[in-house]
């Protein structure tokens, strides 16, 4: 009834056939030559973007890690430097102290040596002086004696005197 009234809602078989054909041709050709490459390209691009973002994130994380590592390294280096400086200072102090001690002992030794040498020389000199004085005294005494004891009586008197002296000793 409705279809009799209105020819608009009566599908025309010719148009059905042609639109089926047109649609099949379209879906085949577009599917093969358009949608497939387009969807593939879009998919690849999106994947590429996603990968780029992921790798950027990764690089960022790596950078952050690297920074942390650098800071840790720096802190460690600073600490080591402080330790090194401290150690160096200690070593140098020690060396200075040692050198001072060594110098002092050397000085003491040299002083002692010098003193002993001086003493020795002094003793030697004194001995020498004593010997010379002795010799001189003997010579003088000899000369005096020779002069005084040139006669016999003097000689005997002197011997006597000496013998007295011996006795006293």
């Amino acid at each position: 009834m409705l279809l009799d009234i209105n020819p608009l809602v009566l599908p025309d078989p010719g148009l059905i056939i042609w639109s089926t054909l047109a649609f099949l041709i379209l879906i085949f050709l577009l599917g093969k030559f358009a949608w497939k490459p387009i969807m593939k390209a879009i998919g690849e691009r999106e994947q590429g973007i996603a990968e780029a973002i992921a790798s950027a994130e990764k690089v960022k994380a790596e950078m952050a890690q690297l920074k942390n590592e650098n800071e840790a390294l720096l802190a460690k280096a600073r600490e080591e430097r402080a330790v090194l400086i401290k150690e160096a200072k200690e070593t140098s102090d020690k060396m200075v102290a040692e050198a001072r001690a060594k110098a002092k002992s050397e000085y003491d030794r040299i002083l002692a040596d010098a003193q002993s040498a001086i003493e020795q020389q002094k003793n030697a000199a004194i001995t020498d002086v004593k010997n010379q004085v002795g010799n001189l005294v003997i010579e003088v005494a000899e000369k005096v004696l020779r002069k005084e004891l040139s006669n016999r009586a003097a000689q005997e008197g002197y011997i006597k005197e000496l013998a007295d002296g011996v006795k006293l000793n």
């Binding site: 379209l26 030559f33 490459p37 387009i38 390209a41």
Partner: peptide, 18 residues
């Protein structure tokens, strides 16, 4: 449709995906 979309598909091929 064929003209539009095949030329667009070729643009993707020619220009690359990046």
């Amino acid at each position: 449709l064929l003209l539009i979309f095949i030329s667009v598909a070729n643009a993707y091929k020619k220009r690359g995906v990046t």
